[in-house]
Simulated scan of single mutants.
Amino acid sequence: MGSEDRGCCDKCAKMFIMVINIIIILIGGAILAAGLYWQLNETGFYKEIFNHDIFNIPIVSIVVGALLLLVGICGFFGACCEVMFLLKVYMGFLILIMLVEIILAVGCVAMKSEVEEYATNKTYEFIGYYGDEAKDEADIIKKTVDAIQENFECCGVTGPDDWPNYNAAYKSETAPERTVPDSCCKDPDSAGCGSAKTISANENIYKIGCKVSMINFVENNLLYVGIVSGVIVILQMALLLESSAYTSLLTREEHYLRYAVQARY
């Protein structure tokens, strides 16, 4: 029994595994490239804030991207070249990834308050370092904080009052011409933005803190995260079943060919 004698379902299973793993390879490559960019980039997409021993976005992205690349390569070439060893390694990776996903899901729930507290304290620390050339020689902290405030349309951690409270350069008595950075402003080019006006009277600055803004962003996108997670789990189960069935088919073929050779001689 050769590959040309297989039914349509068996050929479709092989094609399904190959196509899905091409997608996995592309996704893994993209995540790996993003992780490397974050790690090498100055602001690293807020890596300075999330540079936690466990929750380190760039490193996690690099590891996940590399793992997905390895998994995709094993699955693609295992199915394409019909290599039993690669298919078994691929199935082992799928099971391992599913177990890791369960552990991460539980860990994220368990460590939510710890990570949130760490990020909050770290941001307060960076507000104090903002604009201090001795502690931020390359302006990495300044660029990171500015990027967060501009992208999430927020100011400070809990609100704009954090700036005069945590950074002496923005206290009215020491810096009468400035109370918040320009990145807090809705329109940075307008006259008087971040000036000596009291924060409550300044309508040109964001009044919402970045902590609330970022939490709202996550909560508003939880539905999409849930949908994507559900699709990924279903695909993983389908891949595991298809790979198991395809491996069983190759095993039967191998036994059949071995029996045919023995019968001939």
Rank of each mutant, 00 (worst) to 15 (best):
V89D: 08
F50P: 02
I140C: 07
E242G: 08
C12Y: 07
A138W: 07
M214I: 14
E101F: 07
I232C: 07
C154L: 10
E177G: 14
G72E: 01
I215D: 12
N167E: 02
I234F: 15
N221K: 15
E114Q: 14
T43Y: 05
G156H: 01
A175D: 06
C154M: 08
T247E: 10
I62V: 14
Y37F: 09
D182C: 11
G44K: 02
I62T: 09
M84G: 13
I141R: 06
Y166G: 00
N56C: 14
Y124W: 05
L239E: 09
G28L: 00
N165V: 06
A238P: 08
F152T: 04
I208R: 15
M98W: 03
I215R: 11
Q236V: 09
Y170P: 00
T179A: 08
L241V: 15
A134D: 12
A30K: 00
G44T: 03
I103Q: 05
G65K: 00
L70S: 10
L257H: 13
G7E: 04
N21Q: 02
T43E: 06
K122P: 01
L40S: 12
N51E: 09
L69A: 03
G29V: 00
I20P: 06
S195R: 11
E82V: 08
V225F: 10
L40H: 09
K112E: 03
Q236R: 05
F217Y: 15
L96E: 04
C108N: 14
L68F: 07
A168N: 03
N165M: 08
V89C: 13
E82W: 13
D139Y: 13
A175Q: 03
M91L: 11
L239F: 06
I73N: 05
G107E: 04
I31P: 00
F152V: 10
D139P: 12
F16P: 06
L104Q: 04
N167G: 01
F152D: 06
A66S: 10
M84S: 15
D146M: 05
L96N: 01
L94A: 03
L26H: 04
S213N: 07
A119Q: 09
G75E: 02
F16E: 09
D161H: 15
V261P: 01
V83P: 04
V64M: 09
A201L: 09
V218Y: 13
C8M: 08
E42R: 14
L257K: 14
M15K: 07
E114N: 12
I215L: 12
M15W: 13
S183R: 04
I24S: 01
Y246S: 09
A168I: 03
